[in-house]
């Protein structure tokens, strides 16, 4: 089943038998089928994914295999047909700011400025706990984290794709989520911008130790950022095919990693997995 490729047993610990209590968030035995005109269309089949506090987990898989569906189930935006999501020992079945989402298409509100987009979330989450001045500070602080403190008054349409995605990340971080869910956050960006944002994310993860679930198409990105990569099989009825624990020391640096044989090893593992899938099932 879950075949891990590590030497020192980090992944083995992750899937040990002590039950879900040791995990911050987990999807337990998720199956989901969409009702379509042609009848039920099974997308996910018995997916179990458990994530520890502070862990950075990437999900890779071919287009249409159900990655977004799985992430939306974690977020509570979709309800599974079977199974459920457990956050700190409690089942959750609706969305909430403790599972902040960074959407693929940024999803900023176009009628609000950069500052207001983040402030909206800050006001909602900390409206009672923080004073007005504190909320203002917190908003600015989070925009500074993603290096967007120079563009507070700009509207989303005035920003490049990368800048929008930064604001989206700032908005999610500002909610101080227990788990940060990201659906191909850099999918629509060019390689250079992508690299910049990956560095921002590394920086933030190093500083805050967030628990992150990230979907990506990009094996390099997954290896660079993650503690563990989950590789999904082809749909319909996709499940998690293989888990790859990335045992690279942090802090990580993309340039140093280039010459690291371990990095090369993980990278080729990931690529080979995707390639095998393609051969076995053929392109869609």
């Amino acid at each position: 089943m879950i075949d891990t490729i590590v030497k020192n047993g980090v992944a083995a610990q992750i899937r040990d038998q002590q039950g879900p209590a040791r995990y911050l968030i987990s999807a337990e035995n998720i199956s989901l089928a969409f009702k379509t005109k042609q009848g039920l269309h099974p997308v996910l089949n018995d997916v179990t994914l458990r994530i520890k506090k502070g862990e950075f987990v990437s999900i890779i898989g071919h287009s249409g295999c159900g990655k977004s569906t799985l992430l939306n189930i974690f977020a509570g935006l979709l309800k599974p047909t079977v199974g459920g999501v457990i956050l700190e020992d409690k089942e959750v079945d609706s969305p909430g700011p403790e599972r902040a989402v960074v959407f693929q298409n940024h999803s900023l509100l176009p009628w609000l400025t950069v500052y207001e987009n983040v402030r909206l979330a800050v006001d909602k989450v900390f409206g009672r706990k923080k004073s007005k001045a504190e909320r203002d500070d917190w908003t600015r602080y989070n925009l500074k984290r993603v290096h967007m403190d120079q563009a507070l008054g700009k509207y989303p349409m005035e920003l490049s794709g990368g800048m929008k995605q930064r604001v989206g990340i700032a908005r999610a971080l500002a909610m101080e989520p227990k788990a940060l869910l990201m659906d191909e956050p850099f999918g629509a960006l060019d390689a250079l911008t992508r690299a910049q944002l990956q560095d921002v994310l590394l920086e933030i993860h190093a500083a805050l130790g967030n628990t992150v679930i990230m979907i990506t198409h990009d094996v390099d990105e997954a290896v660079l950022l993650s503690d563990r990569i989950m590789m999904m099989t082809h749909g319909p009825g996709a499940t998690i095919g293989e888990a790859l624990a990335i045992d690279l020391p942090r802090p990580r640096n993309r340039i140093d990693l280039l010459d690291d044989p371990a990095y090369q090893h993980y990278r080729s593992k990931g690529l080979r997995f995707l390639h095998q899938l393609q051969r076995r099932n053929g392109p869609e």
């Binding site: 969305p95 700011p97 959407f103 509100l109 009628w111 909206l120 909602k124």
Partner: peptide, 24 residues
């Protein structure tokens, strides 16, 4: 997308109308 944002932030009916529905 806007509805998803509102859902994640757990907006109630009135907040939803004032902060998302009306401006959108």
């Amino acid at each position: 997308d806007y509805l998803n944002v509102a859902a994640v932030l757990r907006f109630e009916r009135l907040e939803m109308a004032r902060k998302i529905l009306l401006p959108a």
